[in-house]
Each structure stands twice: as structure tokens, then as C-alpha cells.
Nucleic acid binder design. Structure first.
Length: 403
DNA sequence: CGAGATTCATGTGAAGTATACCTTTAGGCTTAA
DNA sequence: AAGCCTAAAGGTATACTTCACATGAATCTCGTA
């Protein structure tokens, strides 16, 4: 037994890694060259170019599904511009904020506060009037004569939750500034988001629009090959691996991010298994693992009440394997659970909202239906596979029992 | 038999409340002249 | 008298509750053929 362990560790240490540079497959990585987005990149570059002459560029609105290269493209361009600006001493600043991040930038106050923090001020998490935070932001931006470009990723999430007032205020910011100038790049995953905006916001935010269409399988292959060359040592990929990753990702609206993740995790699995080659079978394992990790991480980070609600959904769905279950049953189960755990139960009103949140997160499918004489409710079903559900169950039980 | 009324179970919006945290301010204490 | 600290007062954002009304199709009702 001990020998075996010894052997394993020794092997593990002496074994050469399959990776050269794992970073190249991570979603934060910005490659030198981005394939199949030439048109979009040119458009954006043209729109942002005036920055380098210290002229205020048009506001820009980029939209397209997840993993279509919106964020990387913009990051790549802004990196370049930042370099140039540095060389030529141009006072240009890019601020990137992801509006989806819970507790960071998912309300008006928090977004503005986060923007101000990016400039190096301390802003408390609560307590200040939002108006005050705007003022702080204005002042710090206006302190220097400079050009500031705010990049708001996934603004659709924010606007859906809190309305478009924030955007209105931000688009008007320029008229109050004396020295600096601000322009906004909005990024949205939702293609129809634009239409839900107040016309005033719409016209000023989307002065320019750039659409990112999904990649097809061949394009994803190109991207994967480029990154794989950086990330892996040569000849560790079994032929067909890239094609298979691409095919999996293309199946889901051409999500390149997902393809890259798949490839990276497949590599990690191969390495863990002490294989010299990344094989096709590793991709299947990787697909399940990525899916599972995504769900589990998400659930682990949820507050207790949310976990309890989800647990109730899972147990009830498992108990009666009907097609769908309803809000009332879930709430009853949830209340019972709270009793057992000594948790103060939330009202049904709130639980209803929590269920809607889980729907948004894609863990469950919920649809409001009317059952005629038998009232109106949400028809809810789990949106996760059985194998994950078992894991999830365990995680939830753990999470709920520790106090 | 069919049009319209009724009904149920919960969705959903608005307003109110509790909590945690912020700034301001007024008082009290110390200190130095 | 000036300076510094502290605690109370007055204010805010957020998560949640309370209240009240909205929904929409299955079912019921009742007039009519």
C-alpha cells in the first residue's frame, strides 16, 4: 500500500506535465490574435480610435451569446490601446466591470461604488446615499484631464434587476465633467436586451453597435488549435480531440469559452490519470466534470435560505417522479426543512423570487402556468442530469447541516 | 350546449420593516498656553 | 481655548415581509335551443 503510494507520488513528480502554459486555456487569457472576429475587431477599433487623439469616442454596444468573443476582443483591443497610450503619454483609462458579479456590481449603488473603487477610492458596501457615490465617482474621474472608457460586461443582468436608470445617469455623466470625458462600452449576452431600454438610454448607449455571431465548429477548431499550441506540449493531443471539443461546443450555440474549458479540463484529467496523451475519452469525462463543477460551485456559494429552497426542490422532485412540481409543494417542503434545521423560514413571496433566481441561473426550469380551476403556479423541473443531482444532494446536505 | 361568471393557487408590484453600516454633530474630556 | 475622542442622531442600501391586487384557464352556472 505504502509502496504504491510512494510509487504514485514519485511518478507524479517525475512525470512531465502535459501543459506548457495552462493560462492559455483560461477564460482570462487574451491571445495576440483573435480568429474569425476581424470584422468586429475592426469596427470596434475604428470606433475607439479617437481615444488616441483624446477625442471622446462614441458609446458602443456589443452583443452576442456567451463565448462568442465579445469580452476577449474588447480586452485585446483595449490592451493594445493602453500600450500605445502609455508610450505616447495619452491620458486614457479603461475600466472593466462585470455587472453579473453578485455582491460586487449587481445593483446601481454597487456598480457605481465598484467603478469608484477601480479608481482607487474606498467606498463602503452600504450606508452612503447613491447620489453621494455618484459625486465621488464624478470628482475622481474629473480630477485629471483624461479619457475614461467604462466597459460594462453583462449589463443586461444588471438592467433586468434594477432598471436602466444607472445607464441613463452614466450616459449623462459627460455633461457634468469639466476635464475628463467618459464613454461607455456595454456588453450584453442577450440579443434583445437593447429593445427593453428606455429610448433615451438606447439612443445614447448604442450610438454604435457590434454584433458577435456564434462561431461554427470549424472556427472553434481554429481557436482551439491556436490555444492548444500555446497551452500543451507538442504531440500530446490525440487526433480528433480538437474536433470533438469543437463539436460539443458548437452544439451549444458555438460557445468558444466552453470549448476551451473542455479542452483544459480534459488535459487536467489526462494528467491526473498519468496518461501521456489527451484522448477522446477524456473529453467525455471533462464534459461531465465541467458541468458538475459549474453547478456545484454555484450552489455552494448560495446563501443558506437559497440552498434550503433548492434542497426542497430536489427532494420533492425525486420523491414523486412526476413531470413537474409546483411552488406550493416546494414551499411546504421548505418550511418543514427549516423547522428541522432551526432556520427561520422566509415567506412564500420571497421563496417565489428565489425560485425565479434559480431559473435564471439555469439550475431549474420554471414556467408560470395556469391550471385553470386549480390556480396558477410555476411548473418547475430540474435542469441538471441525474449524476450531478446526486452530488448536489450531498453538497446541500453538507452545506445545510453545518451551522 | 355554449357563453359568460367563478374559482383557485399563486404570481407580482408597491410599500413597509429590520439590519447593518455610513456621516455628522454635539458633548465631554484632555491638553497646552 | 483648542484639539481629540465618543456616542447619539439622522440617514442609506439591501434583504426580506406585508398587503393587495392581478392572472388565466378549468370548471360551474344558467339561459336558450
Amino acid at each position: 500500500m505504502i509502496d504504491k503510494l510512494d510509487q504514485f507520488f514519485n511518478e507524479y513528480i517525475t512525470k512531465e506535465s502535459l501543459f506548457l502554459d495552462k493560462k492559455a486555456l483560461q477564460s482570462t487569457f487574451t491571445p495576440e490574435e483573435i480568429f474569425h472576429r476581424d470584422e468586429q475587431i475592426n469596427q470596434i477599433a475604428k470606433i475607439l480610435a479617437p481615444c488616441l487623439k483624446i477625442e471622446n469616442p462614441s458609446n458602443l454596444f456589443a452583443y452576442g451569446k456567451t463565448g462568442t468573443g465579445k469580452t476577449v476582443s474588447i480586452r485585446m483591443i483595449t490592451n493594445k490601446m493602453r500600450e500605445i497610450a502609455e508610450q505616447k503619454n495619452i491620458p486614457l483609462k479603461f475600466i472593466y466591470v462585470n455587472c453579473k458579479l453578485k455582491k460586487i456590481a449587481d445593483t446601481e449603488y454597487r456598480l457605481i461604488a465598484q467603478l469608484a473603487r477601480e479608481f482607487g477610492t474606498e467606498i463602503p458596501y452600504t450606508g452612503l446615499p447613491t447620489e453621494e457615490v455618484y459625486k465621488i465617482l464624478f470628482n475622481i474621474v474629473d480630477k485629471n484631464k483624461q479619457l475614461v472608457v467604462l466597459i460594462l460586461d453583462e449589463i443586461d443582468q444588471l438592467v433586468q434587476k434594477t432598471g436602466d436608470e444607472v445607464l441613463y445617469n452614466l450616459t449623462r455623466i459627460n455633461s457634468e465633467l469639466k476635464n475628463a470625458q467618459v464613454s461607455i462600452i456595454g456588453i450584453s449576452n442577450n440579443l434583445f436586451f437593447r429593445d427593453s431600454l428606455d429610448p433615451r438610454v438606447k439612443s445614447s448607449l448604442s450610438e454604435e453597435e457590434v454584433l458577435f455571431p456564434p462561431y461554427n465548429a470549424l472556427q472553434i477548431q481554429d481557436i482551439l488549435r491556436q490555444r492548444a499550441k500555446l497551452a500543451f506540449k507538442s504531440d500530446v493531443l490525440q487526433p480528433g480531440v480538437i474536433e470533438k471539443c469543437a463539436a460539443y461546443a458548437a452544439r451549444e450555440h458555438g460557445d468558444a469559452r466552453r470549448a476551451l474549458e473542455l479542452l483544459r479540463v480534459a488535459g487536467e484529467i489526462a494528467e491526473r490519470d498519468a496518461d501521456d496523451l489527451i484522448e477522446l475519452k477524456h473529453i467525455d469525462t471533462a464534459e461531465e466534470k465541467t458541468e458538475r463543477d459549474k453547478v456545484l460551485d454555484l450552489v455552494k456559494s448560495q446563501p443558506k435560505q437559497q440552498q434550503a429552497t433548492l434542497y426542497s426542490i430536489i427532494t420533492i422532485a425525486a420523491k414523486n417522479n412526476r413531470e413537474a412540481i409546483f411552488t406550493g409543494e416546494i414551499y411546504d417542503g421548505y418550511k418543514e426543512l427549516c423547522l428541522k434545521l432551526g432556520l427561520r423560514p422566509l415567506t412564500q413571496r420571497r421563496v417565489s423570487d428565489i425560485i425565479a433566481e434559480f431559473d435564471m441561473l439555469g439550475i431549474i426550469n420554471a414556467k408560470v402556468i395556469s391550471k385553470g380551476r386549480y390556480g396558477r403556479t410555476r411548473e418547475i423541473s430540474l435542469a441538471i442530469s441525474d449524476s450531478i443531482r446526486t452530488n448536489l444532494n450531498k453538497i446541500l446536505e453538507e452545506g445545510l447541516t453545518v451551522s
